[in-house]
Computed example of a mutant assay.
Amino acid sequence: MAKSKFKLNKSGVGDLLKSGEMQHLLENKATDIRNRCGVGYEQDVYVGKTRANAMVKATSNKAKRDNAKNNTLLKAVR
Protein backbone atom coordinates (compact mmCIF):
# COMPACT_ATOMS: atom_id res chain seq x y z
CA MET A 1 0.00 0.00 0.00
CA ALA A 2 1.49 3.34 -1.08
CA LYS A 3 1.72 6.15 1.43
CA SER A 4 0.28 9.49 0.43
CA LYS A 5 1.60 12.79 1.65
CA PHE A 6 -0.73 15.62 2.48
CA LYS A 7 0.48 19.17 2.94
CA LEU A 8 -2.00 21.67 4.35
CA ASN A 9 -2.01 25.11 2.74
CA LYS A 10 -2.02 27.21 5.93
CA SER A 11 -2.61 30.54 4.22
CA GLY A 12 -5.53 29.04 2.26
CA VAL A 13 -7.11 27.71 5.46
CA GLY A 14 -6.63 31.12 7.07
CA ASP A 15 -8.31 32.81 4.12
CA LEU A 16 -11.20 30.34 4.34
CA LEU A 17 -11.69 30.95 8.08
CA LYS A 18 -11.89 34.73 7.46
CA SER A 19 -13.91 34.59 4.23
CA GLY A 20 -17.25 36.21 3.58
CA GLU A 21 -18.84 32.79 3.20
CA MET A 22 -17.68 31.80 6.69
CA GLN A 23 -18.98 35.09 8.08
CA HIS A 24 -22.34 34.46 6.42
CA LEU A 25 -22.50 30.94 7.89
CA LEU A 26 -21.69 32.26 11.36
CA GLU A 27 -24.27 35.04 10.97
CA ASN A 28 -26.96 32.43 10.22
CA LYS A 29 -25.96 30.30 13.22
CA ALA A 30 -25.88 33.32 15.54
CA THR A 31 -29.31 34.41 14.28
CA ASP A 32 -30.75 30.96 15.04
CA ILE A 33 -29.31 31.06 18.56
CA ARG A 34 -30.53 34.61 19.19
CA ASN A 35 -34.02 33.70 17.99
CA ARG A 36 -34.14 30.75 20.40
CA CYS A 37 -33.13 33.04 23.29
CA GLY A 38 -35.88 35.62 22.83
CA VAL A 39 -36.02 39.37 23.43
CA GLY A 40 -33.05 41.20 24.92
CA TYR A 41 -30.25 39.31 23.15
CA GLU A 42 -28.03 40.65 20.36
CA GLN A 43 -25.58 39.09 17.94
CA ASP A 44 -22.38 40.21 16.29
CA VAL A 45 -20.01 38.72 13.71
CA TYR A 46 -16.48 40.03 13.42
CA VAL A 47 -13.15 38.98 11.92
CA GLY A 48 -10.37 38.43 14.42
CA LYS A 49 -6.68 37.82 13.92
CA THR A 50 -7.01 34.24 12.69
CA ARG A 51 -10.71 33.63 11.97
CA ALA A 52 -14.24 35.00 11.83
CA ASN A 53 -16.13 34.93 15.14
CA ALA A 54 -19.79 35.11 16.08
CA MET A 55 -21.14 36.28 19.41
CA VAL A 56 -24.59 36.30 20.99
CA LYS A 57 -25.00 38.17 24.27
CA ALA A 58 -27.66 39.30 26.68
CA THR A 59 -28.03 43.09 26.51
CA SER A 60 -31.10 43.96 28.57
CA ASN A 61 -31.22 43.56 32.33
CA LYS A 62 -34.13 41.13 32.03
CA ALA A 63 -32.19 38.98 29.53
CA LYS A 64 -29.07 39.05 31.74
CA ARG A 65 -31.09 37.83 34.75
CA ASP A 66 -32.77 35.19 32.59
CA ASN A 67 -29.43 33.94 31.30
CA ALA A 68 -27.89 33.88 34.80
CA LYS A 69 -30.84 31.94 36.21
CA ASN A 70 -31.61 29.57 33.32
CA ASN A 71 -28.41 29.36 31.23
CA THR A 72 -30.48 30.51 28.27
CA LEU A 73 -27.53 31.08 25.94
CA LEU A 74 -25.96 27.72 26.68
CA LYS A 75 -29.26 25.91 26.09
CA ALA A 76 -29.88 27.84 22.87
CA VAL A 77 -26.53 26.69 21.44
CA ARG A 78 -27.62 23.04 21.82
Rank of each mutant, 00 (worst) to 15 (best):
S11L: 11
M1E: 07
D66K: 14
M55E: 13
K57M: 11
C37M: 10
S11A: 15
A58P: 12
N70G: 10
V56T: 07
N70H: 15
N35W: 00
F6I: 15
G12E: 14
N9K: 13
A76T: 06
E21G: 11
G48R: 03
A76S: 13
L8A: 14
A54D: 02
A2Y: 06
K7V: 15
K75V: 01
N70D: 14
A54P: 02
N61E: 13
S19M: 11
A52Y: 05
A68G: 09
Q23C: 09
V39T: 13
T50E: 08
K7E: 13
A54T: 03
A63I: 09
S19F: 11
V47A: 03
R78V: 04
S4Q: 05
L74A: 12
V56H: 06
R65D: 13
A76C: 08
L26Y: 03
I33N: 01
S60M: 04
L25M: 07
C37W: 04
T50W: 03
K3Y: 05
N9T: 03
T59P: 00
D15T: 09
K62R: 13
K3Q: 10
D44M: 07
M55A: 11
R65G: 09
L17K: 14
N9V: 05
F6W: 08
N70K: 15
K7P: 00
T59M: 07
K10I: 10
L73E: 03
A52H: 05
K18R: 15
S11C: 01
L25W: 01
R78W: 00
R36W: 05
L17R: 13
N53H: 14
T72W: 02
K57W: 12
K49P: 01
F6A: 07
L26H: 02
N53Y: 13
L26C: 04
S19A: 11
V45W: 04
V47H: 00
G12D: 10
K64E: 06
H24I: 00
K29R: 13
A58I: 07
Y41F: 15
